[in-house]
Amino acid sequence: MTEFSSALSVLSSGMRGQGQRLRHISENIANVDTPGYRRKTIEFRAAVEDGRRSGAIEAGPVQLKRGDLPRIYDSAHPMADAEGYYDGSNVELVTELADAREAQRSYEANLKMFEQVRRMSAELFGLLKR
């Protein structure tokens, strides 16, 4: 039975990780027009238990996309400098939408496997009751 519980643990960690990724993507999309906003990303790493990789994942710290922010000319903008420019956001909507689709599909794949493992364990219990 430990195989079932470890499989469920691995799959739930994947679902948690993709959920966190989707939260950051939605923050990025919400702030696509926010001056000075930097794109947030997270990386996943293998979870370690008792000195061994467990197969599960854990999210690393939030990372901000580095580099120069685009300079936008709008002399009427309240954040514009004396020359009429302000720093824009480095979020690209097309990239965020592609990442969101990838995270959604990964989440759904983990969910389907989670349901399959749950069904298999229920059938095993049913066989053992006989």
Rank of each mutant, 00 (worst) to 15 (best):
L11R: 03
T34H: 06
S12H: 14
Q63V: 10
N31T: 10
Q63S: 14
L22S: 15
Y85P: 01
E83A: 15
D33G: 07
N90S: 09
G19A: 12
Q63W: 03
E96L: 02
G36I: 13
S12C: 10
K40E: 07
A82P: 04
I29F: 05
R38K: 14
E96R: 00
G17H: 01
A7M: 08
S54G: 13
K65L: 13
N31M: 13
A7I: 02
V10M: 13
A98F: 04
M15P: 06
R16I: 12
L69G: 04
F44H: 01
D68Y: 11
A100Y: 07
R66K: 13
P35Y: 11
A46P: 05
A47C: 02
E27F: 00
D81M: 15
E43C: 00
G19F: 11
K65H: 08
L11Y: 06
Y73I: 09
Y85S: 04
H77S: 13
A46M: 07
V94M: 07
Y37D: 01
G51P: 11
S75N: 13
G51D: 06
D74L: 15
G55E: 06
S75Q: 11
S26E: 09
T41R: 00
A56C: 09
S13R: 04
V32R: 05
A82V: 08
M15Y: 15
D99R: 04
G84L: 12
G60C: 10
R16N: 08
S13E: 06
H77P: 15
T41D: 09
Y85D: 00
E58H: 00
V62K: 05
T41A: 04
L11C: 01
P70M: 06
M79F: 15
L64R: 14
R23A: 09
P35G: 10
L69V: 06
L11A: 00
P61L: 08
M15G: 08
L93E: 03
T34W: 12
D50H: 07
I57W: 06
E27H: 12
N28Q: 14
Q20H: 10
E58N: 01
A46T: 12
V91K: 04
E96M: 05
R71G: 03
G84A: 14
R38A: 02
V62M: 02
V32P: 01
E43S: 12
G51Y: 03
H24V: 02
L64G: 07
D87M: 12
D33N: 15
G14Y: 00
Y73E: 01
D99Y: 01
V10G: 05
S9K: 02
G55T: 07
D33E: 15
G67F: 06
L93W: 10
A80S: 13
G14F: 02
G36Q: 10
G84K: 15
Q20N: 12
P78V: 13
A30Y: 02
R45Q: 07
A59C: 01
G36C: 14
A100C: 10
L8P: 00
R53I: 09
A76R: 14
R21H: 00
L64H: 13
Y73N: 11
I25Y: 00
L93M: 14
I25F: 02
G19M: 08
K65P: 03
E27A: 10
